[in-house]
Computed example of a mutant assay.
Amino acid sequence: MSLKSIQKKLEYTKYVVGEQLCYYEPSRNKSQNTLVQELSSSLNKKQKSINPKFFYDKKGSQLFEQICKLPEYYLTRTEISILTQLYEKLPPHLNGDFRLVELGSGSSKKTRTLISILERLQKHVEYFPIDISKILRDSSKKLRDDYENLHITGIIDSYESGLEFIKNYDNKKNLIVFLGSSFGNFDYENGLEFLQKINSSMKKDDLFLIGLDLVKDKRVLERAYNDSQGVTAKFNLNVLSRINSELGSNFNINKFVHHAIYNESQNRVEIYLRSLENQIVNIPKARMILQIKQDELIHTENSYKYTIPEINKMLSMTGFRIKDIWYDEKQYFCLVLLSKND
């Protein structure tokens, strides 16, 4: 299938911002329809839920950047400490030129380490960020201004659609990266399905670098998702503001509070919005009227934590071979480099 055919199938419009930067974006109707369709299902179930991918409108993305700087939120600084090791440890695994493809690029701050590594090894660096948030446009412009030999093709869409686009793009080798702990948002079955999707989108010589948060002390985890400044609470509540803005709903943000606990039996942090009273919410564009009881929980996110045996099993089942694995000094987090197990 040609690139133009894929672009048409995915309902993308291409925007060109100079010689070094372009990006693809689905039509607004497609984006809004996705939100309506998913909420129509997830909010009508006995356990109401909202997919965490909808956290990341412009304000949500900005709040998440604030979370990454919080003293309780160990994940970002821990992962950065591992990434700095890769200046020496990654190049031996890179045979020839690679394009950098990032799932969930956000502000692309951590990506700079990987771009710098590739810049040392090859004359030109191609970077394909894939992110559902439009923050991608601003972060890509900053990267373009800072790297003379960097060429960026952004995709503002879901990971799955972005991967389908990449799969059919050309024959150049890709280094696909999925940093942070976003993989932990998937439950076990959906996580396996997603890993298989990535594997099937890879060519024989492609590589995949994934960040995975490891099981650790409950107190460390609960502090990370219940910060003292209340930024995580604002981030969680903002998803209701987004639904109000885009779908004309009347969620009263003051009638909900952030609620996060660590479920030790499932090795996951569970995040909810708890209703402070009985209330009725109207979502006109989704043709929904919700009755929400006092203390009822709307589930917004799971963040699974993993053991090394679980990681080995999960990756083996989805067709990957571990080429290397790197940890921080406390072994709170790991980065795993993978190839297809063909």
Score class of each variant (00 low, 15 high):
residue 168 N to L: 13
residue 98 F to H: 11
residue 341 N to V: 00
residue 27 S to C: 07
residue 127 Y to L: 02
residue 81 S to G: 05
residue 34 T to E: 14
residue 227 D to R: 05
residue 124 H to C: 02
residue 63 L to T: 02
residue 106 G to Y: 04
residue 290 L to I: 06
residue 52 P to H: 10
residue 102 E to L: 08
residue 19 E to D: 14
residue 336 V to I: 15
residue 314 M to L: 15
residue 48 K to C: 15
residue 136 L to E: 04
residue 301 E to Y: 10
residue 158 S to P: 02
residue 320 F to N: 10
residue 327 Y to F: 15
residue 319 G to R: 14
residue 260 A to L: 07
residue 129 P to F: 05
residue 342 D to V: 04
residue 263 N to F: 04
residue 122 Q to S: 10
residue 143 L to A: 15
residue 341 N to S: 13
residue 40 S to Q: 12
residue 272 Y to I: 00
residue 340 K to R: 13
residue 136 L to N: 02
residue 186 F to W: 13
residue 63 L to D: 01
residue 237 L to P: 00
residue 94 L to N: 06
residue 145 D to I: 07
residue 188 Y to S: 04
residue 327 Y to V: 03
residue 7 Q to E: 11
residue 304 Y to S: 14
residue 285 K to W: 03
residue 243 I to K: 06
residue 249 S to Y: 01
residue 4 K to E: 14
residue 243 I to D: 05
residue 58 K to R: 03
residue 214 L to Y: 01
residue 104 G to H: 09
residue 272 Y to C: 00
residue 54 F to T: 07
residue 341 N to P: 00
residue 249 S to A: 08
residue 315 L to C: 11
residue 288 M to K: 12
residue 20 Q to V: 01
residue 317 M to H: 10
residue 219 R to D: 05
residue 50 I to H: 11
residue 135 I to S: 12
residue 86 L to R: 04
residue 287 R to F: 09
residue 2 S to F: 04
residue 14 K to R: 15
residue 21 L to T: 00
residue 22 C to S: 13
residue 29 N to E: 13
residue 148 E to L: 13
residue 305 K to A: 06
residue 319 G to I: 11
residue 51 N to E: 11
residue 182 S to Q: 00
residue 165 F to N: 03
residue 122 Q to G: 08
residue 281 V to W: 13
residue 204 K to L: 10
residue 206 D to V: 01
residue 318 T to I: 07
residue 44 N to R: 11
residue 9 K to L: 12
residue 98 F to C: 12
residue 206 D to A: 11
residue 322 I to F: 13
residue 313 K to W: 03
residue 328 D to E: 08
residue 155 I to G: 02
residue 9 K to G: 03
residue 36 V to C: 15
residue 126 E to H: 11
residue 246 E to W: 01
residue 109 K to Q: 04
residue 20 Q to D: 09
residue 88 E to L: 04
residue 231 V to W: 04
residue 117 I to G: 02
residue 335 L to S: 06
residue 86 L to M: 06
residue 213 D to F: 14
residue 17 V to K: 14
residue 233 A to S: 09
residue 121 L to C: 07
residue 79 E to Q: 08
residue 184 G to E: 04
residue 268 R to C: 06
residue 76 T to H: 14
residue 179 L to E: 09
residue 339 S to Q: 12
residue 40 S to H: 06
residue 131 D to T: 03
residue 90 L to I: 01
residue 169 Y to R: 05
residue 257 V to C: 04
